[in-house]
Simulated assay, not measured.
Amino acid sequence: MSETVSFGYQEVLPEEKTRRVGQVFSGVAAKYDVMNDAMSAGLHRLWKDTFVRRVKPRAGEAILDMAGGTGDIAFRLADRGASVTVADINQEMLDVGVERALERGIDGLVWSRQNAESLSYPARVFDAYTIAFGIRNVTHIDRALAEAHRVLKYGGRFFCLEFSTTQWPGFGDVYDFYSHKVVPQIGQAIAGDAESYRYLVESIRRFPSMPEFERMIRQAGFVRTKVEPILGGLVAIHSGWKV
């Protein structure tokens, strides 16, 4: 039988997931950051601030921000003096990021359309690799992790910010109701697209648990791996080093 992968709660062929995820982000690109504010009550900004503090970007080092199309993480990294390449598989997301950078007077960023599973960069060129709320949308997560390891220099660090499953008693039930019932309605009201946001919620539920994802990071070759849960694991910062 042909291999299948998850697209939300559905099982589809890998190429079908890649195509459909592309359609999702092409559709929501223009309203992506507005929706993030609405869905998280602005908390995503605090999570991203914390994430970048953990990365500890330094002046002059080369950082690849994967799935970073709208620039949210890249702007924060560049503000610390890092040399940032923003990569995303979706051109519409990159276009939004370039426009936002122009509006803010931010220059010096490199914008590149890339597939996380098959990066065009040579081995050992980046000091750090970051990916925020993007890896769960990759068709083959293990391949993306292997590529992250390949393009990092020895001593380079991997950081991933991603939704997970909160372990706080009671809070998980409330969040399940909110995400499955309310988020698609917000998506319809703001972006005119309930189905894309229904998929994004379902993709969180299908993403590996924190221990399982940490194991995948180690299998890709990273050491000194760490998981930092936020809000009981609703969101988690994963990290590892290439040695």
Rank of each mutant, 00 (worst) to 15 (best):
G22E: 00
F163M: 05
L152H: 15
A146D: 12
L109N: 11
K181L: 03
P169Q: 13
G155V: 09
V151A: 07
I73K: 13
D173E: 09
Y178N: 04
K242P: 06
S209T: 09
K56I: 03
M216A: 09
L231T: 14
P208N: 01
R58N: 06
Y154G: 11
K153C: 00
I190N: 01
M1R: 15
A30K: 15
Q10P: 03
R53P: 02
H44L: 01
G233M: 11
L77Y: 10
I204F: 13
G42Q: 12
E212N: 14
S120C: 07
V21K: 10
A82G: 08
V174W: 05
W111E: 10
A220Q: 06
E15N: 05
V125S: 09
V201P: 11
S164G: 15
E162M: 07
S40N: 09
W47R: 10
T50Y: 13
D65N: 03
Y199C: 08
H238Q: 05
M35F: 02
H180I: 02
E195P: 04
G60K: 03
F7K: 14
S120P: 02
D49T: 13
A144K: 05
A132H: 11
G192I: 01
A128G: 11
F25G: 12
A74L: 01
R124I: 00
G42T: 01
V28G: 12
G134N: 01
R206Q: 09
F171P: 02
G81Q: 06
T225Y: 10
H238V: 02
M1N: 05
S209A: 12
S164I: 04
G42C: 11
S203F: 05
V125L: 10
K242I: 01
I190T: 05
M93Q: 11
W241N: 05
Q10S: 14
A236T: 12
H238W: 15
E92A: 15
A41M: 08
I204R: 12
N115H: 02
D72L: 07
R100F: 02
S179Y: 10
A74I: 01
G170T: 07
R157D: 10
E3H: 13
A87F: 03
K17T: 02
G172A: 07
V98N: 09
F163C: 12
R100L: 02
F7S: 05
A123W: 06
E214V: 04
I230M: 15
G170H: 11
Q23K: 15
P208L: 08
M66Y: 01
V151W: 09
L94M: 05
A41E: 02
R143C: 04
L109K: 04
V84F: 08
G240Q: 03
P122T: 02
V21Q: 12
D173K: 03
G42I: 01
T4P: 03
A144T: 02
P211A: 00
F126W: 03
R104W: 11
E92D: 15
L109S: 08
E147F: 13
T165F: 01
F51P: 04
H238Y: 15
E99P: 00
T85Y: 03
K48N: 03
R224T: 04
E11L: 11
V235A: 04
V24F: 14
D95K: 14
R157A: 11
A146R: 13
V243F: 14
